[in-house]
Design a protein around this nucleic acid. Structure first.
Length: 481
RNA sequence: GGCCCUGUCGUCUAGCCUGGUCUAGGACACAGGAUUUUCAUUCCUGGAACACGGGUUCGAAUCCCGUCGGGGCCGCCA
């Protein structure tokens, strides 16, 4: 093979970029980088009705967020704007005209009703629904005449009946009998080309060497190869990735809920974790390692180790990997990215850092910190008095315990208010009981208002003496109510 | 329905090409336990799979055939 490896991700901006897009992009990126090649982003916005700028921006933002920067695009200074099919109409027109002139394509004037009737008829006979090629019989003069008369038509590609086989890099040889296919519409008119055609033109124009895409495109491949051959263009290598599946084992889609990248990002999943998770869905290194940075993935990646069967998108596994990355992150950095999830409250960064430290090993995703740590950002807490009682302790006993705690630490000076000190003082008493929970549980609840939280001494230190004592008093009041 | 892809624990997968070392390994999840005031972390333990049926072979998860299952595509969407 001569030349550089070039791959592309070709999403259509008809919705927010989702996890399926992300994985396909990732595999294209990894393969290109592994081979020292280029990774290209091409926005397939030929569907004018459904394509939206907002969605294109979402694709750009989120691919970048994942670290999948593309290597070229329209020159506009700074980061590359992606290629857009909507801006390449003239190019497609050139190729369309060529196909038309050489008799590889023709204008079709069949109406939607006609086609629908044909389709229904074929279905009832148990045949594959396909266009029979009625308008193919029209002479060029006839076609021109009807167009000139203002009749509306579409452009169809003449499908050569033959067996077409290609080597899929993941699946081996795949064969199709194009007799079973109809003449596909490749453009609505000269200025409105359609997917199967633009893909072929662009993959050639952009010198793409490897088309790595989802398995749902296998059936499109023979048609694209035929168009390629009609245009006398060189072939490309294909690799069809296994599908990302929902819990019901069908292709991941809206039916399975919102799987947009932006949603995972909003919930506080880290890009490194998402990349790591996605890479292991359909690919593995061949040994038992499962934590990989994107750089390591590039080094290890190979198409040969890609799975053939679809993979269910398993959220629990993503949560586990995300938690792992959170735990490994430097505290300073973690605090920074947790900030948006923390409630509004006057508090300096150092304090927030101390709080985040308490949750570093408890978070699966950043957004969880909002609810988990909310009590640090409140002046008064609300909870039922029963929550204060450890095991079978009565509220009366609990109240006395809280009073005792208040006495024990009420005299500690501001400067000695550290978790080590408080622990030393209170544990001395707590150890005297048959179970330290009788002292520690009510204290912890008094400070957090929750049945699950970090330890009481750590909370007390962050809360400061005044706030801690105040919360204990509040708990005493609550237990008396 | 037609065509195509696919089939190892609930899930992601190793092993399959180059049959024996596989009483099938790892991870997530789950269950139990240790640590622990709770939650989480960490550690230990456990249950859990070669879709089925033939064949080839001394021997098959691995090779061959068939069956069954799952999925994708059949748009003037991509």
């Amino acid at each position: 093979m001569n030349g550089k490896v070039r791959t592309r991700i070709a999403p259509s901006p008809t919705g927010f970029a989702h996890m399926g897009n992300a994985r396909t992009a990732l595999f294209n990126y990894l393969f290109a980088k592994k081979e020292g090649g280029d990774f290209i982003l091409r926005v397939e916005d030929t569907d004018k009705e459904r394509s939206k700028k907002e969605y294109e921006q979402d694709i750009l933002d989120n691919f970048r967020w994942l670290g999948l920067e593309w290597d070229e695009g329209i020159e506009k200074g700074g980061p590359y704007a992606p290629y857009r099919q909507s801006e390449r109409t003239e190019l497609y027109k050139k190729y369309l005209t060529k196909l038309l002139e050489e008799g590889h394509a023709y204008w079709c004037f069949c109406t939607a009703e006609e086609l629908e009737a044909q389709r229904a008829h074929q279905m009832s006979l148990g045949e594959a629904p396909r266009y029979k090629g009625k308008c193919r019989a029209l002479s060029r003069q006839e076609q021109e005449k009807r167009l000139a008369a203002g009749e509306r038509g579409v452009i169809r590609f003449v499908l050569e009946p033959k067996i077409i086989a290609f080597q899929d890099l993941i699946r081996g040889e795949i064969k199709f009998d194009t007799n079973l296919l109809g003449d596909a519409v490749i453009a609505k008119d000269l200025k409105t080309p359609l997917y199967n055609f633009t893909v072929v033109v662009d993959d050639f124009e952009m010198q793409i060497t490897h088309v790595i895409r989802g398995e749902e495109h296998i059936a499109n491949t023979p048609r694209q190869i035929l168009i390629q051959q009609a245009l006398a263009l060189p072939g490309v290598q294909y690799a069809h990735l296994p599908l990302l599946l929902g819990e019901d084992r069908t292709k991941l889609s809206k039916r399975h809920g919102d799987n947009s990248i932006r949603k995972f990002r909003e919930q506080g999943y880290l890009p490194e974790a998402v990349v790591n998770f996605l890479a292991l869905l359909g690919w593995n290194p061949g040994d038992e390692r499962e934590i990989f940075s994107i750089e390591q993935l590039i080094k290890e990646f190979s198409l040969e180790r890609i799975q053939k069967g679809g993979a269910i998108f398993n959220l629990q596994r993503l949560d586990w990997i995300n938690g792992l990355y959170i735990r490994q992150m430097p505290l300073e950095e973690l605090t920074e990215i947790c900030k948006p999830y923390l409630p509004e409250y006057p508090m300096d960064f150092e304090k927030k850092k101390e709080i985040v430290a308490l949750y570093q090993e408890r978070l699966k995703k950043l957004s969880e910190i909002a609810e988990l740590a909310d009590f640090f950002f409140r002046d008064a807490l609300e909870y039922p008095k029963e929550l204060l009682c450890w095991k079978e302790a009565t509220t009366e006993q609990t109240k006395e315990m809280l009073q005792k705690i208040h006495e024990l630490i009420g005299g500690v000076g501001e400067s000695d208010w550290t978790k080590e000190n408080l622990e030393k003082i209170l544990m001395l008493e707590a150890e005297k009981m048959q179970n330290r929970g009788y002292m520690l549980w009510p204290l912890r609840v008094a400070l957090s208002g929750k049945k699950a939280s970090p330890g009481p001494f750590e909370i007390a230190e962050i809360l400061d003496k005044e706030q801690t004592l105040q919360r204990i008093k509040q708990a005493i009041t609550i237990s008396k109510a």
